[in-house]
Design a protein around this nucleic acid. Structure first.
Length: 561
RNA sequence: UGGGGCGUAGCCAAGUGGUAAGGCAGCGGGUUUUGAUCCCGCGAUCCCAGGUUCGAUCCCUGGCGCCCCAGCCA
């Protein structure tokens, strides 16, 4: 039922799928092999979801396969925690790499041998230039670089030096292995790019068995070739690297010839999607962690209660092109509401309780009323909700002096309590400070279930909960992490953090059926939004996260006035 | 004054020599025991200027604008 998702190659069309389709049709490859290649130096976010859905999606649609490969070539930044979280997040998103999990580090020995191959053919050399001098020799965007004085060392000397780099004879940064291409190229990536650097750092997988590590440019394409990847899909900023990608494949005895294609990365309003910035938010404590529900990380979205199917649908709807784009969060929010509306069970919960007393309802009496679990889905069945003399309604549903078009409770007005009775507010009781602390009401016994025997109508329907039967809970309300749509467009992006992004309501009252809510399951609190139980919950202290509010056109009219 | 990429509605995005899909947002209206959902309706001198053509968003030429690249990060 939730399978509105397509497996038909004709359904989703974009320039990448067109290329794959043509390659298959014209025999340039027998089957398609893609890969999702994260570096384990942070948590996955919704931008990665776009790439994951593309790579695994294309593989599934064309009956190929998609590998999960970790580009673990920089032990200075990588951690095992990330290797684990990435796998968990990809699985949660709904994808399965089967036995095809790989690590660039598995290829270190092969890569080393191929580097020697490059040296022997005069395609690479050991350079003694410091990092600073390397930069100086590289030239600028408009001026060509200069050849390193070490550029023309004989192959034997290079081979010897390279072996000694590996053996640990030189300090970090003392030498590099560079491809010998063209220091005058307009493409800076071709100005003798570094292939290996000396770096003494414990690697999450190879430990301290290496002190030289291949760079991305050297490891990535070769890993693709070793795995038999046919279509290496990456984001636009790597387009400049493609000539180098191809040059390496051309000059190495790789078992296959992968092709790289680039698409534009996702940008979303009201949040940040750069690993650097997300890491900063976590490390500096601006959020509670990578899985903070305000974060655009998959872990954060999961904890927030966003269904993975909504994310998949979102990535499909935004399309795939090479144009820079910033998608409005509203588009994501739409997908979330759409999926939740179909699946979430409905419950009544009062977030800001205001007590009301039904004066003509007998003290000590109570009854059970039947309520639909999901009006959109009859199969979801019904449940019983207790009703009694003392109830809670939301403070926002009462106004002593209501403006025009306010359909909720106010003195003298009759409204419907959902699934219960019509009630009329007779009096607002105030404290010394003049604040309304209780409403005295009467009910019409002939409206049980919410329909009047005489057919009279009522403008508003509000939710409620029986005071004596209610559960109390904490509810966390989330808003956009950044108030501006474009954080950091001017000044430090951290200054744009929305202080209102997290709001905590401590004294919420829930209908009893909510006592059985399993963690993570989406529930609609009627007239409020979609919520799910947070793992912070303890016995006797439930904590709910608001995944997303229901659309609220009343707030719009009210605010627009 | 180098190299690469991109310019179709507020935001995504199809299309392609014959006169502009769809989604999101917005705005109106209808249904409604969630002011939700659902349903209906409304928006484009296709970056600009020349040229080719019976006809150009699409082809050609020249502009303009935006993004990326000078890590021993990925």
């Amino acid at each position: 039922m939730a399978e509105a998702e397509t497996k038909d190659p004709e359904e989703t069309r974009d320039f990448i799928r067109d290329i794959v389709r043509a390659d298959l049709a014209e025999g340039r490859c027998d089957s398609v092999v893609t890969r999702f290649p994260p570096e384990p130096n942070g948590y996955l976010h919704i931008g990665h979801a776009k790439s994951i859905c593309l790579n695994f999606g294309v593989a599934a649609e064309f009956a190929g396969r998609c590998h999960l490969r970790f580009d673990d070539t920089n032990p200075a930044k990588e951690e095992h925690e990330y290797i684990d979280s990435i796998q968990e997040d990809v699985r949660w998103l709904g994808f399965d790499w089967g036995r095809h999990i790989y690590f660039a580090s598995d290829n270190f020995e092969t890569l080393y041998g191929w580097a020697c191959h490059l040296i022997r053919n005069g395609h690479a050399y050991v350079d003694d230039l410091s990092a600073e001098d390397t930069r100086k020799f590289r030239g600028t965007l408009t001026e060509p670089g200069k050849n390193s004085p070490f550029r023309d060392r004989p192959a034997d000397e290079n081979l010897d030096l390279f072996a000694r780099m590996r053996a640990g004879e030189f300090p970090d940064g003392a030498r590099t292995l560079r491809a010998k291409i063209d220091m005058a190229s307009g493409n800076i990536n071709l100005r003798d790019p570094v292939l290996y650097r000396i770096l003494r750092a414990a690697h999450p997988r190879t430990g301290d068995s290496w002190c030289i590590y291949p760079t991305y440019d050297y490891a990535h394409g070769q890993s693709d070739a070793i795995e038999g990847v046919t279509h290496s899909l990456c984001t636009l900023e790597f387009a400049d690297h493609r000539p180098l990608y191809d040059w390496l494949i051309d000059n190495l005895p790789t078992p296959s010839r992968p092709r790289q294609y680039e698409f534009s990365r996702l940008n979303l309003t009201h949040t940040v999607l750069s690993k650097r910035r997300l890491t900063l938010l976590v490390k500096e404590g601006h959020v509670a962690g990578w899985d903070d529900p305000r974060m655009p990380t998959l872990a954060g979205l999961r904890r927030r209660g966003v269904p993975p199917a909504a994310i998949r649908d979102f990535t499909r709807r935004i399309g795939l092109t090479k144009s820079d784009n910033t998608v409005e969060v509203a588009a994501l929010e739409h997908c979330i509401r759409e999926h939740l509306n179909r699946t979430a069970a409905r419950r009544l919960a009062v977030l800001r309780p205001l007590k009301i007393t039904i004066e003509n309802y007998l003290e000590g009496q109570s009854e059970e009323l039947e309520a639909l679990n999901n009006p959109a889905n009859p199969d979801a069945g019904t449940r019983q909700i207790p009703f009694s003399r003392e109830l809670y309604i939301d403070r926002a549903d009462f106004m002593e002096e209501p403006p025009k078009k306010f359909f909720r409770m106010s003195p003298g007005r009759e409204v419907r309590l959902r699934y219960a009775y019509f009630v009329t507010c007779r009096e607002a009781v105030k404290n010394e400070a003049g604040e309304v602390i209780e409403l005295r009401c009467t009910y019409d016994p002939l409206t049980r279930g919410g329909n009047a025997a005489d057919g009279r109508k009522v403008k508003g329907t509000i939710h409620w909960v029986s005071a004596a039967h209610a559960l109390t809970a904490e509810v966390r309300i989330y808003d956009h992490l950044f108030a501006r749509p474009d954080p950091g467009a001017e000044g430090d992006f951290l200054d744009g953090i929305n202080p209102q992004a997290l709001g905590v309501l401590q004294d919420c009252r829930l209908e009893p059926a909510l006592g059985e809510a399993p963690a993570g399951e989406a529930i609609q609190f009627e007239r409020e939004g979609y919520f799910c139980l947070d793992p912070d919950s303890k016995p006797g202290h439930a904590v709910f996260n608001r995944t997303i509010a229901l659309r609220d056109s009343w707030a719009k009219t009210k605010g627009g006035k």
